[in-house]
Amino acid sequence: MPDLLSLVVQQTINGVYLGCLYVMVALGLTLIYGVMNQINFAHADFVTVGAFVALFTMTRLATKMLGMPEVAGYLLSIVFALGAGALLGLAVNAAVFAPLRDRGDELRPLIATIGVSVLLENGQLALFGPIPYQFDSPLAKETLRFGKIFFSLQNVLVVAVSAAAVAALYAFLKFTFLGKALRAVSQDRETSGLMGINQSFLIGLTIVIASALAGMGGALLGPGLVLDPFAGATVIVKAFAIVIIGGFGNLAGTILAGILVGIIEAFTIQYLGAGLIDLVVFVLLLTMLVVKPTGLIAERREENV
């Protein structure tokens, strides 16, 4: 295989891998926006919590206490991070978001998400300290090689888990009664109430799904992060950019934008250097805002959620 071609294939693979990580984080943001027209500023911290839960599940619980092999321990940690994200979403919704929403205020829940973010960051700072943790995925060491192209089992796992999560979300929204009701709420909240749909329940469910994805995203991302209590913030800026490029609240657009940004990032690293990634991504974001502020595929007047 000629060098250029294998280079392009290699960087595309790297890009898709990165993109899948971003999609896991961005999906929750866009889902919450699509259903309740609200930005969740605490989303990054749900990712961080997921990463810490995964780290401790793998290093303390699975391998030390249960004596599981490392790989099995990491897989278990992904499940635990998913569950931890869901539980955290459930708790935060019940304690903060739902009561504020019931008072019919739009601004207060938004500001509350910033409050939850500060709370989670400082809570983790108190628990884990400011020094970054080492989070090594046992799968990152296992590399597969095809000619000049190689990738790790971690890459394969991330892409497979992300694809499975997207497929599950799609099936939920398309084929289940609750999923269709969620789309109904996102399209016309008042009318959905008149249909007998309990919006508070569905909004809570949306937050739980988004948080579960964020938690799982944390477990997948963790090994690539400098894992401290503020680790999520480094990804969330890019996730916001992806959500905007994809068209706020548009799931398909977000997935497409996530993969696209991942690929652009991989090629930027190859040709321009890693230091320019943010520059390139945000030039792209600004260009999108000027040229096509409704997002990548919004022009087809696509459904959001």
């Binding site: 609750l178 269709k180 009701a181 016309d188 009318t191 249909m195 007998g196 749909i197 696509e302 459904e303």
Partner: peptide, 26 residues
Amino acid sequence: LVPEGRRVFPFLTVRENLEMGGYKFR
């Protein structure tokens, strides 16, 4: 209630709209 201006869910299919009307029998 059949609301003013009909307010069907535009991106749901006809069948899905009907299902939403029957939400209480889900």
